[in-house]
């Protein structure tokens, strides 16, 4: 099967709507297809991977821990918009430390998160074959 570049465009906060959860479910299934996968978190999508989510009081499943599994699925290109973070008073320190083990570098643990400018995001978007929006 041919390899294509897939990007998952995540622009909505979790819990208020189901898009974030069901987007994550697609990404986890997609990993089995061995495509080139990137995730982009922009606008309120950045809240999907923020630290310290606690859903006890709303009776919904806290699925934020699942993002930690992405590295094990070889999903390690997680792009986060610098502008979206800044607009919301957030920084990289507010995000969950999502990592992967680099098999080409003696399984060293590395961060999957790349904070990118709009210019970088534009370039990454322009390289994609398929964009799935949630």
């Amino acid at each position: 099967m041919s390899t294509k570049k897939f990007i998952y465009l995540n622009r909505k906060a979790p819990y208020g709507t189901v898009y974030a959860l069901e987007s994550l479910e697609v990404v986890l299934i997609a990993a089995a297809f061995e495509q080139d996968v990137s995730l982009a978190f922009i606008d309120d999508g950045v809240y999907q991977i923020i630290k310290g989510q606690n859903t006890d009081g709303i009776g919904m499943k806290n699925f934020s821990k699942t993002y930690h599994a992405l590295g094990d699925y070889d999903v390690n290109k997680i792009y986060v918009s610098a502008e979206s973070l800044e607009e919301r008073g957030l920084s990289v320190d507010d995000l969950m430390p999502l990592t992967y083990e680099d098999e080409d570098d003696d399984w060293a643990e590395k961060t999957s998160i790349k904070i990118i400018s709009n210019v970088q995001l534009t370039k990454i978007m322009s390289e994609q074959d398929v964009c799935l929006s949630f």
Binding site: R11, I42, T122, M125, S126
Partner: peptide, 27 residues
């Protein structure tokens, strides 16, 4: 690249976000 925007700029920020992300050839 084709960017499809389906919400009013008075209601959502999707047009603004899209404009942040288009290159010189996008429509």
């Amino acid at each position: 690249m084709l960017h499809i925007v389906n919400k009013s700029s008075f209601e959502r920020n999707s047009l603004k976000s899209c404009l942040n992300t288009i290159d010189d050839t996008s429509i």
